[in-house]
Design a binder for these strands. Structure first.
Lengths: 223, 223, 223, 223
DNA sequence: CATGAATGAGACTTCATTCAT
DNA sequence: CATGAATGAAGTCTCATTCAT
């Protein structure tokens, strides 16, 4: 996974659920596509409101304004429709935390930018990210999806750390992968705790705190 | 929560579930106490093996070698027996990460020590901590329990950061609470990801990585 | 209750259960309506045969020739399906004991007629009336339903007694309401004891006895 | 049953449950007798408070301040302890409605007296009488007990009616047994409805109303 | 395709009764 | 006898999934 090219990464981020579930049921007509879309939107609403476990298929189809049986025309299970939602979120989170290459920023500025857009994207999707987190704790497919997503982030950070070390910007790290893992945990879990469990810090505080601990932590910036 | 005395904290850590669930059912006889204990042990085993959701009451009582109804002699629900387990783990985690006051160590050494015993305690209880994490994502009582536990850790770190800043050991922090939260996330989620989701880094790597990012991050140690 | 218009009374008699239980589940399709009807018929059969308490949901759905879960498509509980049955019986009993206004009969003849149709309706529904009586002794909703039904009858009798006294047909009663209550008890409980508990007197004996005690009792007829 | 001597009647009234249940378990020691008594008292309290069906054996023994298992030292079932309570009540009701032979009262005065003491006794035991009524609707033994008790009352009234007719005090009745049944229903059900289901009329109103309808109804008294 | 009814497996929970101490 | 723990049968109810129209 460490050596994935960026374009492969992007594909994975956008279609992870297809690798883990059966091929999606594709509607042929335009009308069918819209119906499917209504279900996805309804699922997002109900999942966030009631949690994954307390959501019944019926709740989704009723919220989408259709009958019970119609759900199965488009999805085989509750997990599958969440998979469809996850793909979108994963793609968005991935894009959000991808910086254009050539924007002449200092390392600290780059890190801060990435953190900021990650935090923004997290906040925008906090509800569903909480659901995915929830489902990851007991569903194999989603656990795997979460693992892959995390690895994408972690390996990107790891590469960045190695680059910084190679260029002498920071002192060499004893365990670059572990450090990248720790930073991933710090950022993602901080967002989870503050935005899913409680709604606490404002964006600037969050970004500033995470960025400062990060850059100092890897030795990029002396006090 | 910031002003809790240590003894209050300890009490909370050990009895959190009692505040969130009904009073526990207390056996009168020695025989009863042993039966209850058998159930708790069985629950730990089954929860870790099958996950909370896939565990049926029957699995627990059968593993404990008794009839179905006996479970209800001691617990009202699956959540309640997990509450009993949580109390033990919370107490252990709390003790593990508490250092004797007067052990002439440098700040970094103190932080490293606390991290090491936390990591050890986490590893020792990884299975059940994973379960508690899981249940916290959908059960109100456990979410609250998790919040309180986390706050205990976070506020301890925050106090330590303020002390370090007061003594000039580190530069003042713009957001001590947020920083403490971020460090809590880094440590606890790193442990969760590596010990519950995968079994990755060895103890020294873990402790070293977390400690280094921490002490540098707060500006305690220049490179 | 004394001032209820007749049409209101009739409505109450026919829909009492709706006031006491949640809104009924209404099938959309013809097929659904038939299924629901099969369940109601089966319930009547099983209740009368086995009694309310010994009837299990399973007995009803099996007697109706369908699966267990189908019951819950139409009723939320055993009480609710009995409520549906009660509405029908209440309506029938109410209609049965309602005389067309302008049938040039003497007071005694009117009373005898009402008694006769009440007795007939009671006999026709004795089985289920016994069940409702049974359930009224321990179920709040049915106790209330029974109270309202009884009050309907009692207040009708009371009005009739006051009218007779006003016209000088009978001497004034010291306690018209209590007298109406006593007559209600005499008639309804006589029917209950003879038709539900034992199958004793023939219709003429019953009607003659009740009517004679009634008309003499209120002083309508001298020996 | 019509020809039972008074002494036989009294015995039956006092020990009906023994004829319907197995021989009671008789405590040998004084202490045992007191324990049994505590259970009976507790049962009365709990039955009236919670109803027969919602009363668990545990509730009774706990209210009596003893352990679960002790109940079975004295009674084989919930029905059996209610049987013990019924015997007492039956005896009391029977005695209450028995007049000393030679008290030189007019027929109306005798009837009024009997009604009054019946009403008083009913009120004194309304709670438990309601319970017995309840249980009679679904339990064979109690249904039988209730039938016998009722027959005792009814046949007494019937004999009285026949005597009155023989002496010319009232005109001959076409159906003395049915009339006696109707009067029994009127009195007992009036008491049930007003004292068990609602607490309505005062004693004088009750006695006066019932007595007047009764004496006029049988033609004893012209208006 | 859409609808909504039908299915049935499966887990929970209660509590009378029996037992071991 | 007293105690309180242990048993296990039974019935309720839910809901994902399948089917008939």
């Amino acid at each position: 996974m460490d050596n994935l090219s960026t374009s492969t990464e992007r594909k994975i981020a956008a279609n992870l659920s297809q690798a883990l579930f059966d091929d999606p049921i594709v509607p042929t007509t335009e009308r069918g596509r819209r119906t499917r879309e209504r279900l996805v939107a309804a699922a997002a609403e109900v999942f966030v409101r009631d949690g994954y476990l307390d959501t019944r298929i019926t709740d989704i189809s009723q919220t989408a304004g259709m009958s019970n049986g119609s759900f199965y025309t488009y999805f085989r299970s509750k997990a599958e429709i969440l998979g469809a939602l996850s793909d979108r979120i994963n793609a968005e989170m991935y894009e959000a935390s991808t910086l254009p290459r050539d924007v002449g920023l200092s390392p600290r500025e780059r890190i801060e930018q990435v953190n900021r857009s990650y935090v923004r994207a997290y906040r925008a999707n906090a509800g569903l990210l909480g659901i995915v987190e929830q489902v990851s704790t007991f569903n194999h497919e989603f656990r795997e999806m979460r693992r892959v997503t995390r690895e994408t982030f972690r390996s990107r950070i790891e590469r960045s750390l190695r680059r910084l070390a190679d260029t002498g910007a920071i002192p060499p790290l004893k365990h670059p992968q572990a450090a990248a893992d720790a930073l991933t945990s710090m950022v993602s879990n901080f967002c989870y705790v503050s935005m899913v469990l409680g709604e606490n810090y404002d964006e600037d505080t969050t970004v500033d705190t995470l960025t400062t601990l990060w850059v100092r932590g890897v030795g990029l910036e002396q006090t």
